[in-house]
Amino acid sequence: MAMLSIRNVTKRFGGLVANDNISFDVEQGALFAVIGPNGAGKTTLFNMISGFFAPTSGSVHFDGADITGRPQYQVSEGGLVRTYQLVQLFKDLTVAQNVMAGFHRVTRGGVASALFRPGWMRAQEKHIADKTGELLDFVGLGGRGDMLADKLPYGQQRLLEVARALAAEPKLLLLDEPAAGLNVQETAALADVIERVNQRGVTVLLVEHDMGLVMRVAQRIAVIDFGRKIAEGAPAEIKTHPDVLAAYLGGTEAA
């Protein structure tokens, strides 16, 4: 069964149809990308999947459950974890503390256990600290744990955001334009991390503008233009699809 299933999703803002009857499936373990020109409705789609707002009609199923219109923290609790187009780090915390905060979903404990620190709580804290080191090494930020997150270069802030999302042990990781604002080297480092994340068994849904990145990492691609899905397939098919070429290169609109 598909990990994520989008069924006939439509979103209207007043008279504007931002997403028009979009459907696709992301299989478990896949690395799926959604691409499209500026203003095509990618971010709208992304926001509906992550629970930021509800679709006007249609449904979103994740991991066997209908999550249409559920609040975002519940969607995340279920294992669908997203990153943001504009980096949303906890700037006043260190790099390591940012990742530690990411473990919220997969740990437990409230006020009482924080005060009295029973054995399981201390073990959990130790586990978190160890895993944080591992994750920072994984994205190539090993040795930077004590730095303030704010002081990292932009490309590394992106990687930190990925590490923090991985701390939540997502079943599906949603990446919203992760290459935005990155230079070529930084994008290459990011592509490498995304591929290795997927190899760890995490299903990835990538919404991206950078064609180089998408063609390199994605196994399957859906193309959106003017709010509608115009194509879906493997990267090689998408590259030669006439509607996609028309949408990206201008050309005459296919009727």
Binding site: S76, E77, Q88, L89, A101, R108, G109, G110, V111, Q124
Partner: peptide, 24 residues
């Protein structure tokens, strides 16, 4: 603690806290 980290993640970025499953 986990509790304190959840509070401080809200101070840092509410959208990010929410995306990590914190009931803001």
């Amino acid at each position: 603690s986990r509790f304190g980290r959840a509070l401080r993640s809200i101070a840092g970025s509410e959208p990010a806290a929410q995306a990590l499953g914190v009931n803001v």
